[in-house]
Design a protein around this nucleic acid. Structure first.
Length: 294
DNA sequence: ACTCAGGGTCGAC
DNA sequence: GTCGACCCTGAG
């Protein structure tokens, strides 16, 4: 993969703290690939290459067809306006949360495309990150528009493109029992029954219920879609990893269901819910076995 | 070769 | 509210 060097005028850098590996390839997004010292992926119809050195982080546009770099879009995507220092200070006295923030400092929550996020987290159920990545990237390669000359330079397919593919093709690609769920989401999307504008303006309950009308979307997946696709901060997805942190070191009642735990955590953490949850998720997932948190 | 579980959810009881 | 089924894949 050489050839970036001719494009280097199409780039910008920033100094906000960010942990690229944890943020781009830590289980919230599935289409960033480590390549040549940085991460290559797409945002919308742009192919990006992101890398860091001692001083700052650089975002480079590989296939920039426009003359202007849309810095604001990338900033929003990476959630650079979120003040990690304030967040960190706020929980400095909470032994467990503080240890998780220290464990993976620079971890941010991405603001991804809602449609891609919806399909990705339907795909995630009873799966694992490696398989989700394989499924989602195969789908993009097979049904999405090519954006660049890289192995993974594809735009995420539209609802119509996925409908054209059909359930059987999804099964052949390895989506398994999730295939009809993805078709249901695509059908709702294409007829306007799945309405992202509504979700953007609705309160938490209404947003969750709207998403849960999709087959294969339960409370947990709906929470993930709101967190990683809509930038909501009052959502608290509870999966097996987060549950482990909540009922273990954080002392929540282990008899509660994940849904109950989510409600309790939302009440407790309010608008910090999404970030607290994500630090628990990533921290628990990457924790070395047989190593206590302190 | 065989079992098991991985960012859950659905439908029947 | 509980429980098995659901597809596939890599690890033990």
């Amino acid at each position: 993969m050489i050839g970036y060097l001719t494009m280097l005028e199409n780039e910008f850098n920033f100094t906000e703290q960010i942990n690229l590996k944890a943020t781009l390839d830590g289980g919230q997004a599935f289409r960033w690939h480590y390549d040549g010292g940085g991460y290559r992926g797409t945002v919308g119809s742009q192919v990006l290459w992101v890398y860091e050195d001692e001083k700052n982080t650089t975002v480079s546009y590989i296939n920039n067809s426009k003359s202007q770099i849309d810095r604001r879009l990338v900033s929003k995507y990476l959630d650079l306006e979120f003040d990690l220092e304030i967040f960190s200070n706020k929980y400095s006295k909470d032994k467990y949360i503080n240890s998780k923030i220290k464990q993976c400092s620079g971890l941010r929550i991405l603001k991804q495309d809602p449609w891609e996020t919806t399909v990705s987290f339907i795909t995630s159920s009873a799966s694992n990150v490696e398989k989700i990545k394989k499924n989602i990237n195969d789908l993009c390669i097979f049904a999405g528009e090519r954006l660049g000359d890289g192995r993974y330079d594809f735009q995420f397919p539209s609802a119509e493109q996925i409908l054209d593919l059909g359930e059987e093709e999804l099964r052949k690609m390895g989506f398994g029992f999730r295939s009809p769920y993805i078709i249901d989401a695509a059908r709702r999307m294409s007829i306007g029954k799945l309405n992202f504008r509504f979700i953007e303006d609705a309160d938490y309950e209404d947003s969750i219920n709207h998403l849960m009308e999709i087959k294969g979307v339960g409370k947990k997946v709906a929470d993930c879609i709101l967190t990683y696709g809509f930038g909501r901060r009052d959502s608290f997805p509870v999966d097996r990893w987060v549950r482990r942190g909540l009922v273990g070191p954080m002392g929540f009642n282990s008899k509660k269901t994940n849904e109950q735990l989510s409600d309790m955590a939302r009440t407790k953490y309010g608008l910090d819910s999404a970030y607290v949850q994500h630090y628990i998720f990533y921290g628990e997932k990457t924790k070395k076995k047989n190593l206590e948190y302190i």
